[in-house]
């Protein structure tokens, strides 16, 4: 056994996938295995994975003693849950009344064009960006509004959103040398 221990691996321990999975279990343990805890559990697991992978949903069902069909039903009911991987940057374009009349459509078209997305294709292949529309972000005074992850941008124009995206891409490229998760 001694020789084996000398094996130098250079690995990062149990790795991202392993860490995430242990986190799932922590989340379930913390909330307890009652059916009413399902939604908060799904929310936290989605934070961890950025979406709800099928196998993780099955695992949650097993761990909580629920049918996979029930868990799938809940996960597909709420628009906040995504069963497809989302990008690192989730861009939410507000399409409430105020934003709509002040040109949110144009911002959406500009973003779609810039990132090669459409109504069916919401996430870029490199899993960097996801573009969604939401009904109201509650910041009508700043219309049209766009949220990128947790940051709110007000009075956005098609040109302005292009600049913001360029900036993010530039930052990302700069970080590329540093090892990125996934």
């Amino acid at each position: 056994m001694g020789e084996v221990m000398q094996l130098k691996t250079g690995s990062e321990g149990i790795g991202v996938a392993g860490r995430r999975f242990t986190k799932v279990n922590e989340i379930i343990e913390r909330h307890g295995r009652t059916p009413s805890a399902l939604i908060p559990i799904l929310q936290e697991v989605q934070e961890e994975y950025r979406y709800l992978p099928e196998e993780i949903l099955t695992y949650i069902a097993v761990a909580m003693g629920l049918n996979p069909a029930n868990v799938y039903g809940v996960a597909t009911f709420y628009s906040q849950f995504s069963l497809a991987p989302k990008g690192k940057y989730v861009i939410r374009i507000c399409d409430g009344t105020a934003c709509h009349v002040r040109g949110s459509e144009k911002i959406k078209t500009a973003l779609w064009e810039k990132l090669g997305l459409s109504d069916e294709r919401k996430t870029t292949d490199d899993l960097r960006f996801t573009v969604e529309t939401v009904s109201c972000l509650g910041a009508c005074g700043l219309a049209p509004v766009v949220m990128i992850n947790d940051r709110v941008y007000g009075q956005v124009t098609p040109e302005g959103i292009n600049e913001i995206i360029d900036q993010i891409i530039a930052e990302e490229e700069g970080e590329k040398n540093a090892p990125e998760e996934n």
Partner: peptide
């Protein structure tokens, strides 16, 4: 997983649930 890490063989294993 912990054992694989402490024994330093984490990169020699494909581990699935």
């Amino acid at each position: 997983m912990e054992k694989a890490e402490s024994e330093g063989v984490g990169d020699r294993i494909n581990l699935h649930a």
